[in-house]
Design a protein around this nucleic acid. Sequence first.
DNA 1: TTAGAGATGTAATGTTATTACATCAATTGC
DNA 2: GCAATTGATGTAATAACATTACATCTCTAA
Lengths: 142, 142
Amino acid sequence: MNAPIVNPALTKNQALVFDALNRAEGPMSAYTILDKLRDHGFRAPLQVYRALDKLTEFGMVHRLESLNAFVACAHREHECCGGAQGHGHGTVAFAICESCNQVIEFHDHKVDHQLGDWAKSKGFKPSKTTIEIRGLCEKCAA
Amino acid sequence: MNAPIVNPALTKNQALVFDALNRAEGPMSAYTILDKLRDHGFRAPLQVYRALDKLTEFGMVHRLESLNAFVACAHREHECCGGAQGHGHGTVAFAICESCNQVIEFHDHKVDHQLGDWAKSKGFKPSKTTIEIRGLCEKCAA
DNA sequence: TTAGAGATGTAATGTTATTACATCAATTGC
DNA sequence: GCAATTGATGTAATAACATTACATCTCTAA
C-alpha cells in the first residue's frame, strides 16, 4: 500500500500552528504565531513552542536561526537525498531577503556533501546543520 | 608603507570585550561577557552589545546564530579569499560540539563558491552567510 | 481500571536584545 | 579659540524570545 510518511496525524495545536505558518507569506516568530492564534484559544507561548518543536521534528517546519523565526517547509513534494534529517532531504539552506522578508528554501547536494566531507575528515558527527544566506532577493536588489 | 589593516585601534570597551572572548575557551553570550566585565565597570548589556557590534564589523568576532553567542575569530593569520566580508576571508563556517561546547571555525572554498553560484543563478545578493554545524566533536563522539 | 505516555493549560521566570535619552571626548572648519 | 559634528559612553527602561514547573486531561495498552 506504500503510504508515504507525510502527515503524522497532527494534534489540534500542531495543526493550528502549521496552518498559521502555511498561510503566512514569510517567516513568523513564535509570539507572532501566538497572537494569530489567540482567537483559537491560544494563551501562552509554550503552546506555540511545543507545537513548533514537534513540527520541526517532523520536518514540516524549519527554524531560521538568524531570525529567531519559523517557516513551513517548502518542499513536501520532490523528496531527494533520502536522509537522516527531516522527511527525506538532507540539509536545507535558506536565502532570506532582508528587504521583503521572502525566504527561499533550497537544497544543494554539493554543499551538503562538501560539509559532510569536512565533518568526516575531522571526525565530527553532525546532528543539525544551519545554512542561511541573508541578503537581497532579485526583485529587491534591482 | 603598506600597513596591514589588522587592529583598528579598539576603544576601551571593545578591547575589554575582545579580551574576554579571547580568554574564554568557547563561545559566550553577551550577558556572560557582561558578568565577566562587571569588575571593569560594565553595568549594562548595551555596553557589551555595542562593543560586539563593532568587533563583528571588524571581523574580529563572530556571532553564532544557533547559540546566540559570540566567539573571537580564530584565524587572524593566514588570510585567504581576500574578501567582501570581515578582514580578508570569505564566509566562515562553524562546527559546534553540543557536548563540550568547543567551536571549530573553518573556511571551505568549495562551499563558499557553490553557495555563491546558487545566489548568482537566482539573482540573490548575499550580505551575510551563516553556516553552523551542530553535533559532536571527535573526542565527544568517541 | 488502572498505569503509562503524550498532549494541554497556566503562571512564573529566565535569557537575549533594543529603544530612548543624556553626556562626554576627539576632530574639523571657521 | 570655539561652535559643530561625529563617535563612544552611561543608564534606565522595555521589548522580544524561550524555558521551567506544575497541574490536568485523554487516550491506550496491559
